[in-house]
Computed example of a mutant assay.
Amino acid sequence: MVTSIIRRFIQALFVIVAMTVIVFLAVNVIGNPVDILINPDANQAERARVIAEYGLDQPLWRQYIDFLAGLLRGDFGNSFVYGRSALQVILERFPATLELALSALVIALVVGLPLGLYAGLRPRSVASRIIMSGSILGFSLPTFWVGLMFILLFSVQLGWLPSNGRGETVEILGMRWSFLTEDGLRHLFLPALNLALFKTSLVLRLTRAGVQEVLPQDYIKFARAKGLSERRIISVHVLKNLMIPVVTIVGLEFGSLIAFSVVTESIFAWPGMGKLIIDSINLLDRPVIVAYLMMMVLIFVGLNFIVDLCYTLLDPRVRLDAKR
């Protein structure tokens, strides 16, 4: 098991190094930030000074080495727009995006798992068919359209919930969170629900498919033959085997919730990283773009590594393969 963990850790390091090359080259292809940083009326001397100040006059390989050295120190350079550390700019917005993604993930699990379990145990019931039809809508409806409909219904027509912003926040461990206040929860509910819609449908259908795959297995028949109650069979035997694919999907989808919350944050004016990265791309703020992309790489690689560890704990077959 230890050997397997070390091997996966080394693979993760190789992935991170490869992604540094891809991210650096991709970002340097995007436009010329000098055109935005420098006034068009500036003379050639002023233009050369600014280019040298930001290291844009260096060869590409030299810029990459400096980028790697800064990455090891946690230094992505200063933002062209904000004039501060790019990583600091990103981290200021990170709690808002993390809070939104966690809330959406909780909604997806709380709603998707029970409904998927019910639909898998009673596939021919009317309620099960309604649930599966609803999951198709969750997959099909565009996120931006659903968000606009939420605002129109709950904010404009009914006036129950606010349509934008984060509301009142509370500082804990140096970061501000809105879910601990009533006003913050009211602001959080609609964007979290909008972001969770697709993931809820995904968890629901995955759970239903897993239940229908597990129920015909011999060990389920043997458990029933032993006289175990249906509740124990479901809670111990069915759910335990369901957790393997669910852990995989939840781990990977949590990363996508953080990385691809751009649409939801833009619609609800949620002050997270998604809105920041859109503004940074428009302004060609390379240090912020690179810091954001590398943070996403670390999050995805880290989540994959954690999923592998959970696999080892949940599935004995993985442990046996590791021993062999």
Rank of each mutant, 00 (worst) to 15 (best):
L105Y: 06
R319S: 13
P59H: 04
T264M: 09
I306R: 10
V156M: 08
E168I: 02
I36F: 07
G272E: 08
P114S: 12
V263P: 01
L109W: 12
A86S: 14
L115M: 12
T20K: 15
V250I: 03
E182F: 04
I30G: 02
H237E: 00
L13T: 11
L298H: 04
V21H: 06
G77Y: 07
F189G: 15
V250K: 14
L105Q: 11
T97Y: 14
K275Q: 07
L252S: 11
I281E: 01
F254G: 02
V247E: 10
V246Q: 09
R47L: 05
A26L: 15
V170Y: 08
E92H: 14
I249F: 12
G112Q: 13
F260L: 08
I172C: 12
F268Y: 02
L309C: 13
D321R: 04
N32H: 10
K323P: 03
R84S: 08
I233F: 06
I277V: 15
I277H: 08
A322C: 08
K323S: 06
R324M: 03
G116N: 10
D308G: 03
I220Q: 04
S280L: 10
E46P: 00
V106G: 00
V21S: 14
W270I: 09
P216Q: 01
L188G: 15
L137K: 07
G167T: 07
D308H: 02
G174P: 14
M243D: 02
V110K: 13
V21E: 03
N164V: 13
M1N: 00
R62K: 15
V246S: 05
M132L: 15
V246E: 13
Q58H: 05
M243P: 14
Q44I: 08
G165H: 08
T169P: 09
M149E: 06
P245F: 00
I249D: 08
G77V: 01
V250S: 01
L72C: 13
V2K: 05
G251F: 01
F80Q: 01
R208K: 04
K226F: 12
V263I: 15
R47W: 03
A209Q: 14
L100V: 02
P95Y: 06
R166V: 05
Y118D: 01
I10K: 05
A225S: 11
L56M: 14
I277W: 02
L303K: 13
L91M: 09
Q11V: 09
E182N: 12
R232V: 09
A196P: 00
I172E: 07
W160K: 11
F260K: 11
Q157L: 10
R49S: 07
W177L: 01
I51A: 00
F80Y: 13
Q44S: 14
L37P: 00
I130N: 14
G184A: 07
I233R: 03
N241T: 13
I234S: 00
Q63L: 09
F154K: 06
V170W: 12
N39A: 08
V288F: 06
Q88G: 13
V126I: 15
R73G: 11
S235F: 07
I244L: 09
R232D: 07
I10L: 13
S163Y: 04
L206F: 02
P59E: 06
S280Q: 08
L298D: 03
V111H: 01
V81H: 06
A45E: 11
R205C: 04
L113H: 09
P191E: 03
G134T: 13
T169C: 11
R319L: 03
L309I: 12
